[in-house]
């Protein structure tokens, strides 16, 4: 099938099998390998990207479903060669260790930024319900998201 979409602001046209997952399309066809695969059951959130401005798990979206959509991956966030404030907060608060869940964590928590009221820790923890990390114990991730929210 033919699909045409925008990925990180750039137009992309491709012919894909209907069963091809968006995450495989991004990783293997477009070589955007910052989006990771951590599970087969949509539990871990490592594959989170933005589809038309909303966080989705790209392992449960078919590439053909993204036809006509606007996709942002982790690579699109620091496009100008400078870390996005949320990425910078992750470094500052030591919110990553192995880094495997990190792109998904960042894409998922991006939605919390720019709100009128800064979320408290309990709200941030609840908002990260769909993303798992095995390294950090989440404390510094929560701190990083809070820090970025306070600054946004």
């Amino acid at each position: 099938m033919n699909i045409s979409l925008r990925v990180n602001g750039r137009p992309v046209e491709a012919v894909v099998e209907p069963r091809l997952l968006l995450v495989h399309f991004l990783r293997e066809r477009l070589r955007l390998t910052g989006t990771h695969i951590g599970c087969d059951t949509s539990q871990c959130g490592a594959c989170t990207v933005h589809l038309d401005g909303r966080a989705v798990k790209s392992c449960t979206v078919l590439a053909v479903q993204a036809d006509g959509c606007d996709i942002t991956t982790i690579e699109g966030l620091a496009a100008e060669g400078e870390l996005h404030p949320l990425q910078a907060a992750f470094q500052e608060q030591h919110a990553l260790q192995c880094g495997f869940c990190t792109p998904g964590m960042i894409m998922a928590s991006l939605e919390l930024l720019g709100r009128a009221i800064v979320p408290d820790d309990r709200e941030i923890r609840a908002a990260l319900e769909g993303n798992r990390c095995r390294c950090t114990g989440y404390q510094n991730i929560v701190a990083a998201v809070r820090t970025a929210c306070e600054r946004s």
């Binding site: 390998t33 690579e75 990190t102």
Partner: peptide
Amino acid sequence: DPRLLAGRG
């Protein structure tokens, strides 16, 4: 961190 954060791991 920077490369991991930028999805360039």
